[in-house]
Nucleic acid binder design. Structure first.
Length: 260
DNA sequence: ATGCCCACGACACGTGGA
């Protein structure tokens, strides 16, 4: 089972490039972030034509997530629990049937948090606390699950081209990384880092200042696996070449393969 | 030392991204 995440930065603009990548990579489950449209405006049919079932949690202009699945969606949930007043569309979750157990896939778009400090940063940290609580609750089921998406977290100095320039940024500052590490220490596995020791492998390159050409990137899109999912992990990768395609997103797809 | 680029909404540039 190949499972991927991709922040597409508007599905309206990226419909063709996403379809091209789906045909090339043939993932079974894909979590998309920043679709930037309401449910009805999501190009559902384009992906149904490629044999995907579609779950959309949209929002006008900002945010919005969706999940595409070649497997039937046995169960689903919209929105991250823990704050009923939060109206930003940043989380959706599905359950599909693996060979020997259900596999749960949560797709997330974690708040950027800049400028930090400030109310936006407070919202980011509070959102991370809610994600932590949700992960802790799921761990009690002792089943394979994945929490994947745009975490907007640079976990380590090896995951950024210029650590000093990012030191005080909401994506890299100490408190952000501590909260991310707290999730990892619950027993979750960073699927890319678990299989690749090479430093400076990125998932995002800014549109500005020739960041892609200079390889000035950051690794902020992650797949965190429960112990039961990590036991099934056979591969992972970053499809960086997609950043060089025509009209690309500033993020690229990141994926893992499970023996499930 | 700063802005560079891109998408959105709805026309002009402000907001948000990271």
């Amino acid at each position: 089972m190949k499972i991927a995440t991709w922040n597409v930065n508007s599905i309206k603009v990226r419909k063709e490039i996403v379809s091209d990548w789906l045909r090339e990579a043939e993932p079974d489950v894909v979590c998309l972030q920043e679709i930037k449209c309401v449910d009805d405006a999501f190009p559902k049919k384009a992906f149904e034509d490629l044999n995907y079932n579609v779950l959309v949690h949209g929002q006008k202009t900002y945010n919005g997530v969706a999940i595409l699945s070649k497997y039937p969606i046995e169960d689903h949930m919209i929105g991250l629990p823990g704050d009923k007043s939060d109206d930003q569309a940043r989380y959706a979750e599905i359950v599909v049937s693996g060979e020997s157990s259900p596999v749960r896939v949560g797709g997330l778009y974690l708040p950027n948090g800049n400028p930090a400090p400030g109310p936006k940063y407070d919202y980011k940290l509070a959102w991370m606390d809610r994600l932590y609580d949700h992960a802790a609750g799921l761990l009690a089921n002792e089943e394979p699950f994945l929490l994947i998406g745009d975490y907007n977290i640079i976990p380590h100095e090896d995951d950024v081209h210029d650590a000093e320039a990012w030191r005080e940024d909401a994506l890299f500052r100490r408190e952000s990384r501590t909260k991310f590490n707290r999730m990892v220490h619950l027993g979750l596995t960073d699927a890319y880092r678990a299989l690749h020791e090479d430093a400076h492998q990125y998932t995002f390159w800014d549109y500005q200042a020739g960041a892609w050409q200079k390889n000035n990137g950051i690794r902020i899109d992650h797949l965190l696996l429960s112990p039961q999912a990590a036991d099934l992990l056979t591969g992972s990768g970053i499809d960086a070449h997609v950043r060089g395609w025509e009209k690309p997103s500033d993020h690229v797809p990141v994926w893992c393969e499970l023996n499930a």
